[in-house]
Design a protein around this nucleic acid. Structure first.
Length: 822
RNA sequence: GGGGGCGUAGCCCAAUUGGCAGAGGCAGGGCGCUUAAACCGCCUCCAGUGAGGGUUCGAAUCCCUCCGCCCCCA
């Protein structure tokens, strides 16, 4: 493609200038209004792919736009540089993850610089920086001191392929590892946990105050899974002094409890199991031990599947409502970790209880009258109670109140709130992460490494060969140490922290990486936090965002970050994915389209424009056969604009006439349109509006009539400013050529539309008769309802159409439309 | 299985939230420029909104049912 300027030279020149002049460096004591714009810091996987390009194009647009609005914009970048892929690659290559990771960081950095994305590089944060690790470890120890970190043995998801523990969320619905695809097993290990459940309510309720996409908030609410209910006793038939404690959200259905179910891990199971049932119970327990929570709670088809998933214990408990004995089963779908590990079963009002009851021939007693036309097994909706003694005739809400009172009196019932959210398991049996700064002393037990000895760094000569345990545990010199308290022989913790720990506070470090001997100075960070605009992928909707919210709240509460607002991200934008052949474009799928090939042809500006133009930013983008042509089209647009800005083929005339004035109106309408589109994340329409304006201005200026000079300059300057956040290089270059030696286009103030020019003198009003368009009238935009109707009725065409008929009704919606009904 | 989202010209997408279905782009066609082609400039073709029903003076937009994709949770 023949370009009117040397794209590579221009882009290189401006990238170097922004970097050398520190154009986008910002100090913490800047006196302007502040704006913190942040893209989720990337995992350094090598050169940027289109997903990165899209993400950082949006982010850079925000940075440059907010700067032009006159704000001091904090725009940092860093790298989420710990993690499994680097470790696996290092194992494969027989090298160390650090050089591997740092090479990938450099590649990604280079790609992003070539995109023209601008950052304050003095604030770069990366997870494996010893200074950053020092504070990650300090925060861990402060959590420990505050009782927010604890060690417990717990069943964990063990991936036999990765030889590590996985978080629940790393296990797919089919019970396989999201990374290796191996079937995940259950194992018990001593692990470190953070008490995120202490914050369940706050994490839930504070969502209301956030300007986040509703769907993300919904996902977080579901993940927390708050449910209000009652915990109460089902006395054992064999020994009524003992009881099975259960939790339910539907105490009102108590008369319909026809059996109870305990989890395979339940402590009373042994006692409940009778000799003749022992074999089948033990078989079930053994089988459940090999399954993940997700497998166990996944709904399975009724019939044989369900039959195998439950076994009768041989014992009975008493239903406290009816005082009738009901059988106790054990089933894998009841989890030992949720609620009390036991449930009451109401087959008439619960889908799964019903399926289970059918398979095991258990009684079904309805307590809620379903609607007349209801067909099916369990009815979970509202209705009047039946077969329910003192609750008969009541709806669910009233019955629930009475049932709760009844249970409080008769079954040691207490109202209780349960959560689906579990405490955060942070231990990882991997090498390439931040070591947990703990030693286990033969005398003192668990001992924190003194803060003045942090960071605890892993030695470089560790064998990462897969061994089934933490690589650090195999390094004698690292593992063997002495107790910092009593000097007795001790062992270092050999697990590392979940990388989500790093991403939970990096944005605070970025706000103030300058204060010596501190993670940050809270008063400095408070100048920037919360992040005004956070941008990232929807895949982080639950975990990263939940953990970061927890970290901030906890750090404030333990005095580590006093004075900060309790939510880290005020506004969140989640961009759509790039898809190729129907699947997400990603390195692991190997379906990447590299940006470099476009830098050399249409340039970074062209590629940026494509991503802005391709569709709504929140929507997925399909990379197709046509995409290259669209990208070329974006390059063509830049060229057309550049030529016009350099007066190529333009005719001028002296006096302003009506035609010039109409162009001015277009310019100001476009300014208004682009500004409002920016504020509503509608970049595709903003680009389209500028394309439209270019068409208008170009035809006008190149026509025989030509352009009035001042009007033309106003149009070009406006377009340069509007495009500056989108296509920064070409606009910087064109501006400099128009105004050599003056401040650059990115130092200009964002244009403001003149309201008088935005509103047109007249607007086309449609006049309909019976919903059909019969006439179009030019009317003032502020025409009244009565005047609009009157003008419509005076119109000759309308009168002809009406042919003397009397209107039954006139719908007047000025200034758009009048509809006359006859 | 539950929750959410999306279906508009050949394709990607607009339609300021219930008011003329078309802004922009891609592809296609034509004309001009050119010895010719590319580039460039101008012009142009193309849908009644996945299907069916309802509400309304009026529905792409709101409400039901179905179909097809996508995402989240199970």
């Amino acid at each position: 493609m023949a370009r009117p300027f040397d794209v590579t030279a221009v882009e290189t020149k401006w990238q170097a200038r922004w970097l050398d002049e520190g154009t986008y460096e910002v100090d913490n004591d800047d006196s302007r209004d502040r704006f913190y714009a942040l893209c989720m810091y990337p995992y350094p996987s090598g050169t940027a792919h289109q997903g990165h390009i899209r993400n950082y194009t949006f982010g850079d647009l925000v940075v440059r736009y907010q700067t032009m609005l006159g704000r001091a914009v904090l725009s940092p970048l860093g790298f989420d540089s710990f993690g499994l892929p680097a470790e696996n690659a290092a194992i494969k290559a027989g090298s160390h993850p650090r050089p591997f990771t740092e090479a990938r960081m450099q590649e990604l950095k280079t790609s992003l610089k070539r995109l023209g994305a601008v950052y304050d590089w003095r604030r770069e944060v990366y997870s494996h920086d010893p200074e950053f690790m020092r504070w990650s470890q300090t925060i861990f120890l402060r959590f420990l001191k505050a009782g927010l970190a604890y060690r417990a043995e717990a069943p964990v998801n063990w991936c036999p392929g990765c030889l590590t523990v996985l978080a629940n969320e790393q296990v797919l619905a089919d019970g396989t590892c999201e990374r290796s695809g191996d079937l995940v097993e259950r194992r018990n290990l001593e692990q470190w946990f953070f008490k995120i459940t202490d914050y369940a309510d706050e994490l839930l309720f504070d969502l209301d105050s956030l300007e986040w996409p509703e769907r993300v908030k919904t996902m977080q609410r579901n993940w927390i899974g708050r449910s209000e209910g009652v915990e109460f006793d089902l006395p054992l038939l064999s020994d009524p002094t003992k009881a099975l404690r259960v939790f339910t959200t539907r105490p009102d259905t108590g008369f319909g409890v026809t059996y109870a179910v305990v989890a395979p891990e339940h402590p009373l199971l042994e006692e409940l199991t009778t000799e003749d049932q022992r074999a089948s119970v033990e078989a079930l327990v053994a089988r459940a031990a090999t399954e993940s929570d997700l497998e166990r709670t996944a709904s399975s088809d009724s019939g044989a599947g369900l039959e195998k998933r439950g076994a009768f214990t041989g014992s009975h408990v008493l239903n406290p409502f009816t005082n009738e004995p009901v059988p106790v089963f054990v089933a894998d779908y009841v989890l030992g970790t949720y609620g009390t590990g036991a449930i009451m079963a109401v087959p008439a009002e619960d889908e799964r209880d019903h399926a289970f009851a059918m398979v095991h021939n258990l009684a079904v007693v309805r307590t809620t009258e379903p609607p007349e036309d209801f067909e099916g097994g369990a009815y979970a909706g509202d209705g009047l109670h039946i077969n329910s003694g003192f609750m008969d005739g009541l709806d669910v809400a009233s019955a629930t109140v009475l049932a709760t009172e009844y249970l409080a009196e008769h079954a040691r019932g207490v109202a209780k709130v349960n959560y689906r959210l579990r405490d955060w398991l942070v231990s990882r049996q991997r090498f390439w992460g931040c070591p947990i700064p703990i030693v286990y002393c033969s005398v003192c037990g668990i001992v924190a490494v003194p803060e003045d000895q942090l960071p605890v760094l892993a030695p470089d000569d560790v064998s990462m060969t897969v061994s089934g345990q933490s690589p650090l545990a195999t390094h004698e010199a690292f593992r063997t140490t002495t107790c910092p308290v009593c000097d007795s022989p001790a062992e270092r913790e050999s697990d590392t922290m979940d990388t989500f720990c790093d991403s939970s506070w990096y944005f605070m470090r970025m706000a103030d990486p300058f204060t010596a001997n501190a993670a940050f100075d809270p008063t400095q960070v408070a100048k920037w936090m919360p992040v005004d605009q956070y941008i990232g992928g929807i895949e982080h909707a639950i975990l990263h965002l939940m953990y970061a919210r927890f970290y901030l709240k906890a750090m404030i509460d333990i005095g580590f970050a006093p004075g900060l607002a309790r939510e880290p991200f005020r506004r969140l934008f989640t961009q759509g994915m790039i898809r190729l052949d129907g699947t997400k474009m990603s390195k692991s799928r190997g379906n990447l389209v590299a940006p470099e090939q476009y830098y050399d042809t249409v340039g970074a500006d062209g590629l940026r424009l494509f991503h802005l133009f391709a569709g709504p930013p929140a929507d997925d983008v399909d990379w197709t056969d046509q995409t290259d042509e669209v990208i070329d089209g974006c390059g063509r647009f830049i060229d057309r604009f550049y030529r016009l800005s350099q007066l190529d083929g333009v005719n001028f005339h002296e006096e302003v006439d009506d035609v010039d004035q109409e162009v001015r109106r277009s310019v100001h309408r476009t300014i208004a349109k682009v500004t409002s589109d920016f504020n509503r994340w509608s970049y595709n329409t903003a680009v389209a509006a500028i394309m439209e304006l270019l068409n208008t201005v170009s035809k006008w200026a190149r026509s025989e009539h030509g352009a009035q000079r001042a009007t033309f300059d106003e149009a070009i300057d406006a377009m340069l400013k509007l495009l500056a956040p989108m296509a920064p290089h070409v606009t910087a270059e064109a501006w400099e050529r128009r105004y050599p030696g003056r401040d650059g286009v990115h130092q200009q103030h964002w244009p403001v539309a003149d309201p008088d020019l935005v509103k047109s003198a007249t607007i086309t009003m449609v006049v309909q008769v019976n919903g059909k368009v019969r006439a179009r009238l030019e009317v003032p935009p502020d025409i009244s309802m009565a005047d609009a109707a009157a003008e419509a009725l005076e119109d000759a065409t309308i009168n002809a159409t009406l042919a003397g008929a009397t209107p039954k009704r006139i719908v007047s919606r000025p200034p758009r439309l009048v509809n006359i009904i006859v």
